[in-house]
């Protein structure tokens, strides 16, 4: 079959068009108003990427000792911690440190009980109004999906946590209680620098630097946002292998069937 001699050219043109469009739009995104993010070498990058278990545990520690005082993690349950290597007894203890409202009981009253592994992470504030009242009018957002809810994802989170400046650059007046951040849109952020060297003392002896804290908690939040990722990529590789073999066989079969034609 040589009747379609013009097609390679057509395909080429189409591909070139799509590539060009992608290139333009990528360039346009990079040159947007936001600062260029430094791409980090995350353990979960790439098609074989997995979450570094040490970083996850340390990241949980950072979250539970620092972030948790203001930020909720509403879509993650304590039981989910078992997926990243916590023992069941350990998870029960962690959950039991928090109280949740339950009820009504037989007397018709609501009561507080210790949280169970099946409960979602208990939020630091009862509602948005309460959290604004406690935070100078600002609302610390829920972190469950934060790693996919910002352009740049984990690289953005890492940049946000590590690129605070003590002073705003000349000519920029910060409002009362605000901090200067290179990465945050508008650079004026209500969250004062949350992490610094030695913010958390790691149980596993990892040096407690700002960069280490930021990397670990970002890994933890990436997991919180996409807990399915490891399963997804593992399954994806199997599906891809199958599809390659299957498509190869179909191509061979197609050639065989069409060979009879001419």
């Amino acid at each position: 079959m040589r009747i379609n001699m013009t097609f390679p050219r057509t395909i080429g043109a189409a591909c070139a068009g799509v590539l060009l469009a992608t290139a333009i739009s990528t360039a346009a995104q990079a040159s947007g108003d936001s600062v260029k993010l430094e791409k980090q070498d995350w353990s979960f990058n790439g098609i074989f990427g997995t979450y570094d278990r040490g970083a996850l545990k340390r990241g949980y520690q950072v979250y539970s000792e620092v972030c948790v005082s203001c930020h909720s993690l509403n879509y993650v349950a304590y039981r989910n911690l078992m997926d990243i290597g916590f023992e069941e007894t350990n998870v029960k203890e962690i959950a039991a440190e928090f109280e949740v409202e339950d009820g009504p009981n037989d007397e018709g009253e609501m009561y507080l009980r210790p949280a169970r592994p099946s409960d979602r992470f208990v939020a630091p504030y009862a509602n948005e109004k309460a959290s604004r009242a406690a935070n100078n009018g600002a609302f610390p957002p829920d972190l469950s999906l934060m790693a996919k809810a910002r352009k740049g994802g984990p690289d953005y989170l890492f940049g946000l946590l590590t690129r605070y400046h003590e002073e705003a650059p000349e000519g920029m007046e910060l409002a009362d209680g605000m901090s200067y951040n290179e990465v945050f849109p508008g650079h004026q952020i209500a969250m004062s620098q949350p992490l610094e060297d030695e913010s958390v003392e790691y149980e596993d002896g990892t040096p407690a630097t700002l960069v280490q804290h930021a990397k670990d908690v970002t890994t933890f939040l990436a997991w919180a946002a996409s807990p399915e990722m490891e399963h997804r990529k593992r399954l994806g590789i199997k599906v891809m292998l199958f599809l390659f073999v299957w498509t190869g066989m179909l191509i061979a079969l197609k050639k065989k069937i069409w060979a009879k034609l001419h």
Partner: peptide, 16 residues
């Protein structure tokens, strides 16, 4: 054949 090639692209996005 087209379906096989398409699925490779489609599931490439879905999984990765």
């Amino acid at each position: 054949v087209g379906m096989g090639v398409f699925f490779i692209v489609y599931f490439g996005f879905v999984f990765f």
